[in-house]
Design a protein around this nucleic acid. Structure first.
Length: 447
RNA sequence: CGGGGCGUAGCGCAGUCUGGUAGCGCAUCUGGUUUGGGACCAGAGGGUCGCAAGUUCGAAUCUUGCCGCCCCGACCA
């Protein structure tokens, strides 16, 4: 992508109503624009990151055996009356009316709809288990939206729903999502910790996946040793027994504020291993049994011919929130420092003397060579001053910056800067594209 | 919803107390000088002062109502 064709409205100054660094940088780097309280337009740069996160979430869901679909954002109130939640949900639900005066709503979640879809297509235990998911915009009329995309009213969520014949089978689905979430967040470059969470009125299992961050909204307590537990590899067998993996993570103490008890914390964790910190909830997995299948009559016949409500779970990932969480984890004073897998561009190519035929030609060659290798390049061929170019590239945070100017050109050199540590090194002009492409590919390799 | 704060050019702000017809920095545009890590000089454009009503000879400034946004609390991906 050539910068001159792109739309990148960067800000030099920090907008005054952005409180936390991720919100500030998203506005400054031209990733989002606020259109209302908790409502944001995703500008081209921000959308690139959002799509990449979405892609990784999708890959890991598919790997775990979940099947993608897409449900609408607008739902009928009728459906929610069936489950009894139309009245129970409260003011967080945005209620609207169509031209015929029918009650509609902008979906805050999809349990009812998926249950309705499922019951229409499944009658027998032979069709189970099933896991279905979609990645769709949700609207929750939050009492107080804040922190940019971290708590927006409109947000992008991946929500998966599992359907099983009984509780034991349900546990297997739960474990699949548990493992998929460990992998998803690790692939994104985040250290997530599954924490025991409020299980709600009907009981069942529930874990929140928390990324530690000073700006997190939740207060959390956990065992330090959780942070470096091994993540299940790409070839983990989802048809096999995942219980040992889940057990390993859940054997250590980890709880959010609501579930935390100081006595248990002190009894189970040595003082030097205790972490008491703040965290961002990036995922939540929940097994809720027949809460919806029973009132909504989502039944499956068992081997004995008797019909029973299916056992369900739901599993959410805050996709748009993850953009904020990633910036909280990866930034410095100059801007974003994206991990390769979510970087809006892998490489920023800086032409130090745009308009000079030699530097233009050298840049064009490298640009072409990189794109041919599948590397995503933002090529700054605008005649701005060098300092401004560097600042802009730092702000958007491409992992590599390749700098071409007349001085280096004379020696056949290009300068390569690594955004993560700021290191700069000279590389031979003839080799730079190949070498950087190899490093990009290596960083994108899935493990 | 309760408490606090804010709304003046794309961004950051001053001016409001004490009414007199709108200003600064950055950004943008033009010309020139520059060009290897956030340049300099000269000039220019850009504003229903959140909206509406009222007071007044005169309102960004005073009064009332409304709208919007941010921060602190109970909910959640």
């Amino acid at each position: 992508m050539r910068l001159s064709q792109f739309f990148l409205p960067v800000l030099k100054e920090t907008p005054s109503d952005a409180e936390i660094v991720s919100h500030q940088l998203m506005l400054r780097a031209g990733m989002i624009r606020q259109e209302g309280a908790g409502i944001y337009a995703w500008l081209p740069l921000g959308l690139r990151v959002l799509r990449k996160i979405e892609g990784i979430v999708r890959e890991e869901q598919n790997r775990a055996g979940a099947v993608e679909m897409l449900m609408p954002t607008i739902q009928q109130a009728e459906l929610w009356r069936e489950s009894g939640r139309y009245d129970a949900y409260g003011k967080e639900m945005l209620r609207i009316e169509d031209r015929k005066g029918r009650d509609m709503l902008f979906g805050p979640t999809n349990e009812e709809m998926i249950t309705e879809i499922f019951r229409a297509g499944v009658r027998s235990y032979k069709d189970l288990p099933k896991m279905l998911y979609h990645i769709q915009w949700k609207f929750r009329d939050e009492i107080r939206p804040r922190f940019g995309v971290m708590r927006g009213r409109e947000f992008l969520m991946k929500d998966t729903y599992s359907f099983d014949v009984d509780r034991d089978a349900g546990r297997l689905s739960y474990n699949k999502m548990f493992v998929a979430y460990l992998r998803t967040f690790a692939r994104l470059g985040l250290k997530s910790i599954p924490m025991r969470a409020d299980s709600g009125p009907i009981g069942g299992d529930s874990h929140e996946f928390i990324v530690l961050a000073e700006t997190g909204e939740s207060e959390v307590f956990c065992d330090k040793r959780l942070i470096d537990l091994p993540i299940p590899p790409v070839d983990v067998d989802y048809t096999g027994d995942l219980q040992p993996i889940v057990d390993q993570f859940t054997s250590y103490y980890a709880a959010t504020e609501e579930e935390h008890t100081a006595d248990e914390f002190e009894a189970k964790v040595d003082e030097h291993n205790r972490i008491s910190a703040r965290g961002i909830e990036v995922g939540h997995i929940f097994f809720f049994g027949s809460k919806y299948s029973e009132p909504m009559k989502a039944l499956a016949a068992g081997a004995d011919g008797k019909e029973n409500p299916v056992e369900m779970g739901s599993y959410g990932v805050g996709v748009s929130r993850l953009v904020g969480a990633l910036i909280e984890a990866y930034h410095d004073d100059d801007g974003c420092k994206w991990p390769m897998v979510v970087a809006p561009f892998h490489v920023g190519l800086v032409n130090l003397k745009a308009g000079d035929s030699d530097t233009d030609a050298a840049c064009a060659d490298i640009y072409k060579a990189l794109e041919a290798e599948g590397v995503e390049v933002l090529y700054d061929e605008t005649p701005a001053r060098p300092g401004e170019k560097f600042a802009r590239m730092d702000l958007i945070g491409a992992p590599f910056q390749i700098v071409i100017g007349p001085r280096g050109l004379a020696d056949g050199k290009a300068e390569v800067k690594t955004r993560a540590d700021g290191a700069r090194q000279d590389m031979a002009l003839s080799e730079v594209a190949g070498a950087i492409a190899a490093r990009v590919k290596e960083a994108l390799r899935v493990t």
